[in-house]
Design a protein around this nucleic acid. Structure first.
Lengths: 201, 201
DNA sequence: ATTTTTTTCTATAGCTGAATAGAATCTCGT
DNA sequence: ACGAGATTCTATTCAGCTATAGAAAAAAAT
């Protein structure tokens, strides 16, 4: 019934597949809209068999969110730590965000939209990681301001949220249009955040 | 059972209250997460009585979305039609978006997050209005570019989506923090979109 | 080849929620 | 105060969903 030491190759492979399947379904129908039946079906399993991999539907949601965040956050930590000039870091942040959207779009979308359906307890770990991201970004702006690389009229808190907003907005484009050139989008996005829309004065 | 000519004062009042209640619950728990029981309870009604005002839960969702979009879209039409310079129009757009968030935050959030749970048929009308908004914004940028008020390196489609993204991102801030000064945020946001984050060269 | 462990299936319990019908109550003009 | 229409309630149906237990099958180990 319950896997005691489930570390076989097959187990890990199927577990990953299960997380991915859950991500797809949650992204498509939402947490409450997608049933364990739907997820199992996509894996070619029967509904009950899912519980060999997850002990509850909520656990599945949590794992999807963690999966979506993983590399995304790791990359952010690395970027924040580096000594590159502000412009380069901002470029890296946008790249990280938008390429994540292309690669793991479902899982990341699930984190963005469905995390609030997790029970308090499970949400804590995720919440920490989410705000960690915002804080790193905010700090990046503060440092940039101190170094004269960013206008001092900029409010770091506001700016961080704006960057996240733009990237999520553009993520919609990436999801909607598979053909879209990510790197072109990244370039335009960074340019906008750096120099705005006004012609040179 | 079903209201034939339900145009009494009371009916309209209660119906509006019902739409609002649904908005609140959908915003809080999501479409599938909120039950008709929850909504009825918030209105001080019994579960079954809701169906005097809505013929289905999905109809309720649709009405909430329409309610959330209404003034928001009307304002956008007016802005797009005007002859003001680009900067003024952008300011108006941001103002419209962010103040809507404060005033009807729930309904607008529901439109943003839950509309995809509507069945194809119902989603059409909403989809039209949503893309109408994007198109108006996009056209605004195109006009700005033609008039030399916006850099010609800007891609209007991309720019429109970016504006929507920033505003939705900042909307999160407004929802999270009731105290936040909307107009300060509007100012900063417009400034960012116009001039970016870099110091003057 | 037989035993052991892992993985999947069948079947079902138990709950919740959407929707409907018809009765009961309320409201208001007359 | 009476009656017609509006509004709400009660009670119920029906479907779908999560989760569990235990049998079956598949894979691995001996």
């Amino acid at each position: 019934m319950k896997p005691k030491a489930p570390d076989s190759r097959k187990y890990r492979r199927q577990k990953l597949a299960a997380v991915r399947a859950a991500a797809t379904l949650f992204a498509e129908k939402g947490f409450h809209g997608a049933s364990t039946q739907d997820i199992a079906q996509r894996l070619g399993l029967k509904q009950g068999s899912l519980y060999y991999y997850f002990s509850s539907k909520e656990e599945a949601l949590e794992e999807v969110c963690l999966y979506g965040l993983q590399t995304y956050l790791d990359n952010m930590e690395a970027i924040a730590k580096s000594d590159e000039p502000f412009q380069a870091k901002l470029f890296a942040v946008v790249t990280n965000h938008l390429t994540s959207y292309r690669e793991k779009s479902e899982a990341l979308k699930v984190f963005n939209d469905e995390r609030l359906y997790l029970p308090q307890a499970r949400r804590v770990r995720l919440k920490e990681r989410g705000s960690r991201y915002r804080q790193l970004l905010e700090a990046m702006f503060s440092v940039g301001i101190a170094a004269g690389e960013v206008k001092d009229s900029i409010d770091a808190h506001f700016a961080a949220q704006s960057v996240i907003g733009v990237c999520n907005g553009l993520g919609e484009l990436l999801i909607r249009d598979e053909e879209l050139d990510v790197f072109d989008l990244i370039r335009k996005c960074t340019e906008l955040l750096l120099h705005g829309t006004q012609p040179a004065r």
